[in-house]
């Protein structure tokens, strides 16, 4: 039986853009565009099997080998730190991980900085590199409210347009790391299906470099 290459795509607008790149690279799966409730889509001729996954779960699928390759945001990769190959920066889904604080906040280096974030590992690594002592407050949503109601001094979060920050009188104080979508591969899977993975990577890289 021919072994299929399993591809985990992030659900949502980003995933649709990523699929378009696969298609343009010569690796289509037309059934994925049909309006139905199917979860898995195959192109037997090319030996490809696509499935949609929650964006934050894509690295788990790839690290565990049920997906040979997948696309995930750099924010998720930095936070979860999966043991995978990161083969390509797709140059889409661009935003930045930043430190934001109330407009009138003055940082006192003599005090422990209270940091609210969904991205505890990224925040810890960022402040550790600066030698700054922090108190991480791990939240799972509505991060912006934390400094407004006094739960934290600053937040570390993804900033796209900055509109939400401005409307809540918060401002970016520092950029932690730029974020974009990355093509990742399972290390073991790459050993046995590397030729097809390399052809897909090259096909998508040509589009990234052409942008």
């Amino acid at each position: 039986m021919r072994s299929m290459l399993n591809v985990a795509l992030p659900k949502g607008r980003l995933g649709e853009k990523v699929y378009a790149m696969f298609e343009k690279a010569g690796f289509p799966c037309p059934s994925i565009l049909e309006n139905n409730r199917k979860l898995i889509f195959e192109n037997e001729e090319l030996g490809l099997r696509f499935f949609w996954a929650k964006p934050s779960d894509v690295p788990i699928y790839v690290e565990r080998g049920v997906a040979d390759i997948g696309v995930a945001g750099k924010d998720i990769l930095l936070e979860y730190a999966p043991d995978v190959y990161e083969l390509l920066d797709l140059g889409i889904g661009k935003c930045r991980m930043a430190v934001a604080a109330p407009e009138d906040f003055r940082d006192d280096p003599a005090r422990t900085l209270r940091v609210a974030t969904k991205f505890s590992r990224i925040a810890r690594n960022y402040y550790e590199a600066m030698g700054r002592e922090i108190d991480i407050i791990h939240l799972t949503g509505s991060i912006e409210i934390a400094p407004i109601i006094g739960l934290s001094d600053v937040i570390v979060d993804i900033v796209e347009t900055g509109t939400t920050l401005r409307e809540n009188h918060l401002e970016v104080r520092a950029e932690v790391v730029p974020i974009s979508a990355r093509l990742i591969a399972n290390k073991a899977g790459y050993k046995f299906k590397g030729d097809l993975v390399d052809r897909i990577t090259a096909g998508i890289a040509a589009q990234v470099n052409g942008n």
Partner: peptide, 9 residues
Amino acid sequence: GFVEGVPTG
């Protein structure tokens, strides 16, 4: 070392 079917080394 890797063997097919096991997702890690």
